[in-house]
Design a protein around this nucleic acid. Structure first.
Lengths: 126, 126
DNA sequence: GCTTGCCTTGACGTCGGTGTGAAGGCCTAG
DNA sequence: CTAGGCCTTCACACCGACGTCAAGGCAAGC
């Protein structure tokens, strides 16, 4: 499988796959002409990468998951290193959720106050 | 008040204040030598800006709030334009909260599964 | 007059995951 | 032979709120 085919099957771009390789996530052999040649397993790896990126992980965080998959595990998140990263990210996400919840409450409060002020002004006009 | 004093009193940097001015948020007169001269009211404006930035607003979103404050209102969020921005941002934040909540649940699920797998392996060893 | 410390504008660096070229080589079909 | 479609590397662009450095002007104390 060449890079274009893998890109299409994974729903991404060739540029992106080269980026993943540059950061030690995806692996490819090389043809005599220098073209990257991918095994079938890389499709799974790319899917794992994209899922983790979507969950807010950085490329460095993703490496242990890929290594875990390559080691023959059924999923990338069952190895100790992956679990450590999962835990850290979970704490981060929970923190962000708290923070954004507070922001949401603040916004709601300001909106409520603005509406209240408007009503007061309406009453004053009458 | 010169830029350094305002920066210190607002808990930020001179560079940041110039950035705000460049984007139409903060206003300053000029001394004969070209130095920026700030009125007392600008301190309040800068605080408003920083609070809104902390809530995830972009500089363009903040402009109406500043205008509202300058118009003599008791708070920056009581004017119609500000309310519109507040509403939009509230929807955004709620969407992000949903999204991150889903991510959190996914992470928790993966962690739970990883722990389960480890227990199975422990049992197998015995 | 010299140092110290404030101020000015201008412009590039940051972070991260890509998009988007440019310039060129390889391969296949017509 | 040539056109087009794949591939290669190199390298700049993006977003956004600044940090940081450079080169210089201005003010005030000694």
């Amino acid at each position: 499988m060449l890079i274009g085919e893998l890109a299409e099957r994974a729903g991404t771009s060739a540029r992106t796959l080269r980026y993943y390789e540059e950061h030690g996530l995806v692996e490819a052999g090389r043809d005599a002409n220098g073209y990257r040649r991918y095994g079938e397993g890389e499709l799974r790896v790319v899917h794992e990468i994209r899922a983790l990126l979507a969950a807010g992980f950085g490329v460095d965080d993703i490496r242990p998951f890929v290594a875990c998959l390559r080691a023959g595990n059924s999923a990338g998140h069952v190895c100790p290193d992956s679990v450590a990263v999962l835990r850290r990210r979970l704490r981060e996400v929970e923190g962000l959720l708290d923070q954004m919840g507070a922001v949401r409450d603040q916004l709601r409060g300001q909106l409520a106050q603005a509406i209240e002020e408007r009503e007061i002004r309406c009453l004053r006009i009458r």
